[in-house]
Simulated assay, not measured.
Amino acid sequence: MNDGAVPTIKVTVLESEPQPELWYITKKMLLNKRLLKDVGKLSPHQQTSALEAFHSVILRFTLKSVVFMFISMLCRLDLAGMLFNENADREQATTLEDTPVYYVMYPKSKKGQRIVKPKKTEPTFGYISYLVTLLFTEVFDNPEVFVEELRNVPIPEDLSAQCDEPSKEELVAWRHVSMFNPVVAGSQRSSDQHQETPGESSGQHMQE
């Protein structure tokens, strides 16, 4: 017996042609409708609760009713991420007797049936102290470095710039197109050109 020696395991691979019967059985098992339906339900609601919680934090910093510039949106998303990361792993609150605390809620998925959920400890906001300290100790002393980094942030173009912008006349023509009154934009523009304006017609009558 060799002390401290690592035993060597020899693996022999048998080269054989795949058997049609085994392949058919495996395919039938993997493509079973019941199995495919169960695979689609492997992600329970508990796995997406953290993502939904992060989305609710984002909505606190970026309201849907307000339009933000790209840099402003980026800064607000960073603040939301810092707040969420600091309070993501909060423990369950307890009483003075170390009894776990729960609260009652009525989720829509339960159709009015009430359930209990563990109550977390109060959130903390230590990231604010960190940002204030960074602001007074580094940013105020040398703001050019931070301004230069902010200018180097790549700003993508607007989504509207990626699409073709039709003219105002084309938009007006398309507005009147419906399934009951189909009008081609080109024919609409050509008919507008041949139609006389009130100013021109009145001028012709005055000349006559």
Rank of each mutant, 00 (worst) to 15 (best):
G4Y: 06
T95L: 02
V183Y: 06
S49H: 06
S190G: 14
D3A: 15
F146R: 02
M105A: 11
S109G: 01
L135G: 05
G112T: 08
F140G: 03
F180N: 01
V39C: 08
R189S: 09
H205Q: 10
T137D: 05
W174L: 08
V116G: 11
D158V: 07
K64D: 15
K110I: 03
D164P: 01
G199I: 13
L30C: 07
R34P: 08
H55F: 05
Y106I: 06
F68I: 01
S191Q: 12
S16M: 13
Y24L: 06
E17R: 14
S190L: 12
R189K: 15
T197V: 14
R76W: 15
L134I: 02
F68G: 00
I9F: 03
G186S: 10
A161S: 08
P154Y: 02
L30T: 06
Y102W: 06
Q113N: 00
I115M: 03
T197L: 02
L14I: 14
K111T: 04
C163Y: 01
S72H: 10
H194N: 13
P156A: 05
M179Y: 10
P18S: 00
P100T: 10
I71V: 14
F140A: 14
H194S: 11
L134H: 10
Y24I: 05
A93M: 06
V153L: 05
S187K: 07
V145G: 11
R189L: 14
